[in-house]
Write a protein that binds this DNA or RNA. Structure first.
Lengths: 332, 332
DNA sequence: CCCGATATTGGATACGTTTTCATGCATCTC
DNA sequence: GAGATGCATGAAAACGTATCCAATATCGGG
């Protein structure tokens, strides 16, 4: 059972032509109609597939695109990945995916793996500081960020949702409902949202109401529960991602806080279950799939002329998790 | 800006040795301590990374593993993918991911892409019939199925959850609560669950209560709504996956059916939001991540001696979406 | 009828690596 | 001291492809 893979030589031999001709025919080069037909016939008959290994080695590029994101478990990232895969497939490009777990060290390691693999395009939801990305740039790999920017890397185009507008409308909506003590529950890599939050809240900002959790579910829950216990005077929460929102709902339930009577909640990212929750969650929808798709488009078009990035709109979807600030929360 | 990638020749030249020696040192072969050190020094200094392209071409294997699944949007598949990625990373293997959308044609196309890419291991959640997989086997690609089996492909090992036990305990639980008219809401590729469902229900089975939706969310909702409207006499539903469960909850709410008073619901697959639902959903938990991880282990160990597959346990997690059959549903 | 232009073709080379094989050198054995 | 044994080493081949270049065939024009 030592089936050698059928190579271009086999096709050439069977068709009675040289390998160069076969290569040309299959790459759309010029050839006489009859040879072309014969070659195609033979190739089809032998079920010949040109080896990407040989081709890539020859033209010193893998033609694959690398995708690095924190975690495929989070539906948001899943949707981003879905968008990337869709676009890549329509271009016939394979995608190598790596999960960084939001760990810069792990990210650096995966970057190394991608470089070793000869990937020449990378899409990433970056975790660490910008330094990790020096290697890809130095190697001439066209790089595009998705969903997040990386500190000190304004030389890499990015496709992101308009956090600025999202946070602002959310904050406006909450203050419009009369809320004054508004908390922010954030995750890793959300510096931009945070700064906008502070800015939008203006004089109302209270640093103690800003909590940043690490990536894990446990950490998110702990952050939410801690926040609610320490500051029973807060009346509204903005959760910076669906895991945080989930943690907030869970913690609120555990502490017997009723949503929205005792606590108003807005969650970043619209997920299917937001509607199933009771009350259904008011959210800021982000076009996750589009982010992935557009990033893939950008990286496929190549770094020739690089647009400075793409900003996709967000949308506040009002459901039932926010109420006008009524009586102050009853203390237990 | 035509930075040639640093190759093994550069290292050899700079270290004053032959390329063979460099290759040996880096692959852990034998070499005198002093040469080894010098080579390693130079390699580190030049930031040399062996090109996977060259290596793979030489040893006629890509060393990568291909992962084909229906959809990264569904958290279940996301968790499976996460498991695969984790295992692959610990083995240093890159993973090429493709989304089939549960479309056999698309699946076949992606299989072709993987073969072209020279992948020598594939993990798949198969969509179509077994015929699609003839090419991979013929090419000597070790193939492992995850989560599902493929009809007529008992020569490919599979890592699956114990649907058999899962369905049986669910049905037993429901009948134990007094339910008699139990519906099954299924998706694509669930033949096994269906047959077990019929078997477990025995004489109670009612073919009209068995509905199979296509993959999309809309289709799932339509199936659920149609079922509930046509057969208002049913008292319990088993949803074969979290999209189906979601659809069931949504449709029930739309038709003003209260869960669990009017309708008991058990959902396959435990997702974080199952707990957030009100009432919290009773589910059959599947070890999705483990399925992926084990499949990766299996495919990495290689097809040398092939275990006939792995069966992972499921668990019925009772929450609040099932009730004893009380009064018959009031007709609107 | 001959020459130059054009179209088609096949041989050879290079891509970066691993691996085989032969060579040289030092050490060991009798 | 001569032959045998072992080890470190480098030259060269091979993996499958794309492309350069020369060679051949075809054709048109003078």
């Amino acid at each position: 059972m030592n089936m050698r893979r059928t190579t271009i030589k086999d096709v050439a031999g069977a068709a009675g032509v040289g390998v160069a001709t076969v290569s040309r025919v299959l790459s759309g080069g010029s050839a006489s109609p009859e040879t072309r037909e014969r070659v195609l016939d033979v190739a089809a008959q032998l079920d010949y597939r040109p080896s990407a290994l040989g081709r890539n080695l020859r033209q010193r590029r893998s033609g694959g695109i690398g995708l690095l994101l924190p975690d495929l478990t989070d539906t948001f990232y899943g949707r981003v990945a879905d968008g990337v895969l869709a676009c890549a497939r329509s271009a016939g490009e394979p995608v190598i995916v790596g999960a960084t777990g939001d760990d810069p060290e792990c990210e650096a390691e995966l970057i190394g793996m991608l470089l070793e693999q000869g990937v020449d395009r990378v899409i990433a939801i970056p975790s660490g500081d910008g330094d990790s990305w020096a290697p890809t740039l130095r190697a001439g790999v066209t790089t595009v960020f998705a969903h997040r920017l990386s500190a000190g890397r304004d030389d890499i185009p990015a496709v992101v949702a308009d956090d600025r507008a999202g946070v602002r409308t959310a904050v406006d909506y909450l203050t419009g409902l009369g809320h004054r003590r508004i908390a922010y529950l954030g995750g890793p890599g959300q510096e931009r949202r945070l700064s906008v939050f502070r800015q939008a809240l203006g004089p109302l900002v209270d640093e103690e109401l800003i909590v940043v959790a690490r990536g894990s579910r446990d950490s998110a829950y702990a952050a939410a529960a801690g926040l609610f216990q320490h500051r029973p005077d807060l009346t509204a929460v903005l959760a910076g991602g669906n895991p945080l929102g989930e943690a907030a709902v869970l913690a609120a339930r555990e502490l017997d806080l009723r949503i929205p009577r005792d606590l108003s909640l807005i969650m970043f990212d619209d997920v299917p279950w937001a509607e199933l929750c009771s009350p259904p969650l008011t959210v800021i929808a982000q076009p996750a799939r589009d982010i992935g798709y557009r990033a893939a488009e950008l990286v496929l078009r190549g770094g020739a002329r690089r647009p400075r990035g793409v900003l996709l709109p967000t949308e506040l979807i009002v459901r039932g998790s926010c109420a006008a600030r009524g009586t102050s929360r009853s203390p237990r």
